[in-house]
Design a binder for these strands. Structure first.
Length: 114
DNA sequence: GTCTTGACGTTTA
DNA sequence: CTAAACGCCAAGA
């Protein structure tokens, strides 16, 4: 497999996993990266999300950082749309941070598995 | 071609 | 406890 193909695959997989996030749940960049076999490449997940603006059906608002902080809210339009949507799905968000993260967290390695 | 920046996370001091 | 360094790699300047 060529290296460039693998990179494309990584991005594709990121989009795929994000699409699979259930309503009312959130996951982290690191969890996705780890699931894809690149636990140290969480930044790439974030970069993939940046590119996800072109795509449709990508609930990027359900992806937060490890602390449950809505680190990417500034990339939304308007920036408040992210937490607004999360709240609309039943997730409690305070101060740009997901509450009860442990409860709503959706780990692809555990939930999706194989 | 290089240099910087970035939706992150872990490790080390 | 907090702060900084490092790894990771894709785009834009």
């Amino acid at each position: 497999m060529k290296l460039s193909e693998k990179n494309r695959d990584f991005f594709h997989n990121v989009f795929d996993v994000v699409r699979l996030i259930p309503e009312g749940r959130v996951t982290s960049y690191g969890a996705i990266a780890k699931y894809l076999g690149a636990p140290r490449s969480s930044r790439m997940v974030g970069w993939a999300m940046n590119a996800s603006h072109k795509e449709e059906g990508i609930p990027a608002h359900r992806v937060v950082n490890r602390n449950g902080l809505l680190s990417g809210r500034h990339h939304f339009n308007p920036p408040e749309a992210m937490e607004q949507r999360l709240v609309a799905e039943g997730i409690d968000v305070k101060e740009h941070q997901v509450q009860s993260l442990k409860t709503v967290f959706w780990d692809p390695s555990e939930e999706l598995k194989l």
